[in-house]
């Protein structure tokens, strides 16, 4: 019986390897190869040209910074918007609830560029184009639904009894939120935030139209190379993009763990002190 889980984990490992690691291999080869032609399985000659271009271009790092800041601001706004919205929709008998949900979820179903075309003129008149703020606002449409969905599920499993209980122990609105609601929502928030960050990071069209070239994120640099047919540079950018996305997810996951471990740690300490 003991062999079974080991076999299973090996199987899982192979699965992860095939579906997660293998797709990166051609990207790595392409970004590092010099004249990698069929039928060579592995490039015959190597070159750092693509990486040199990507790494040495000051815009790359500027774009990384802008991409990440936009993603994080968007996510913060999403959290601030989605918590009260999910709370209201899940907890109170709102009339026409389905309509609210339909509006909030519509950006998932309607291609974002259609709505962006619409808001572009408005943003132009408001002077929001070519600004980070404008891009941030435009990114909210395609990302908010995911944050909202994650929080709705979290709220579904949070009975109001918990808050009533805290209330009866003398907790006002803010302490109730921080001691009862937030800890319960935390995993949902991290799940929603991961999606929100990833989706924001991957926006090209919206950033391009609203940012109008003045807000240069990583996809803005990357896309011309994909369409322009320079697979070397495109691969290098893609890998950099993937690395940043993965790193962000790891950092957020670690933050959640730390959040939960802070409590566990005090517990361990207390256990150690006890005679």
């Amino acid at each position: 019986m003991k062999k079974h889980p080991r076999f299973l984990s090996l199987f899982l490992f192979i699965g992860v390897f095939i579906f997660v690691i293998v797709p990166f291999v051609p990207l790595i080869f392409t970004s590092l190869s010099f004249g990698w032609r069929w039928p060579d399985v592995v490039p015959q000659a190597w070159s750092l040209r693509a990486w040199e271009y990507v790494v040495n271009d000051g815009r790359t790092w500027q774009a990384v910074g802008i991409s990440l800041s936009i993603a994080l601001i968007v996510t913060a706004i999403n959290i601030a918007l989605a918590i009260p919205a999910a709370n209201a929709l899940m907890r109170y008998p709102v009339r026409g609830k389905w309509l609210f949900e339909a509006i909030i979820f519509s950006p998932i179903i309607i291609p974002p560029f259609i709505s962006v075309m619409g808001i572009h003129l408005t943003f132009l008149r408001l002077g929001l184009t070519e600004t980070v703020l404008g891009v941030v606002l435009a990114h909210i449409a395609p990302t908010l639904p995911y944050m909202f969905r994650a929080l709705m599920i979290s709220y579904q499993t949070l009975s109001t009894d918990w808050e009533d209980q805290a209330r009866m122990l003398g907790a006002g609105a803010m302490p109730r939120f921080f001691h009862v609601v937030l800890p319960h929502l935390a995993p949902g928030i991290v799940a929603g935030a991961s999606l929100s960050v990833l989706i924001s990071l991957s926006q090209y069209l919206i950033t391009f139209i609203i940012g109008a070239g003045q807000v240069v994120t990583l996809p803005i640099l990357l896309f011309p190379f994909i369409s322009g047919g320079d697979p070397g540079v495109a691969s290098a950018y893609s890998l950099l993009y993937a690395a940043i996305a993965i790193l962000t997810l790891i950092v957020m996951d670690a933050a959640l763990r730390r959040y939960y471990q802070r409590n566990k740690a005090t517990k361990e300490q207390a256990k150690g002190v006890k005679p």
């Binding site: 209980q165 209330r167 009866m168 907790a171």
Partner: peptide
């Protein structure tokens, strides 16, 4: 309710 200085025990223990 939070200012009434009452306490309440529910059917579930509702421990945080």
């Amino acid at each position: 309710p939070e200012s009434r200085r009452f306490a309440m025990v529910f059917q579930q223990s509702l421990l945080f």
